[in-house]
């Protein structure tokens, strides 16, 4: 597991307050707007996102990099677009 380089292009996706499956739907919609190789950070307080973002990456062939936190402490799930 690798974390993105400091200063790397990271687009944050605000899914605060959105319940499952909405954060994963937001992620699927946002991915085409991200360049291949870039990272998107899904900021979600919904408990299911912790499991469903990595599961989505596995099913859709994208790379799950791990979890950190947004500036306000809300969990942020990092996904690198591979395809």
């Amino acid at each position: 597991m690798s974390t993105p380089e400091p200063g790397a292009d990271l687009r944050e996706l605000d899914c605060r307050g959105r319940l499952c499956p909405l954060p994963v739907i937001d992620l699927a919609r946002a991915l085409p707007e991200v360049a291949v190789g870039d990272v998107v950070g899904v900021v979600a307080d919904d408990a299911a996102a912790r499991v469903d973002v990595p599961a989505w990456c596995r099913m859709r062939g994208q790379e799950y990099l791990g979890e950190d936190a947004a500036d306000d402490g809300v969990p942020r799930y990092l996904v690198r677009r591979l395809t």
């Binding site: 408990a47 990595p54 599961a55």
Partner: peptide
């Protein structure tokens, strides 16, 4: 999660890394 009283996803599916 939306079908559970606690709004937590199944701990079984979560432990397996399955889509919840």
């Amino acid at each position: 999660a939306c079908t559970s009283s606690t709004f937590e996803p199944s701990h079984v599916l979560a432990a397996m890394g399955a889509l919840t």
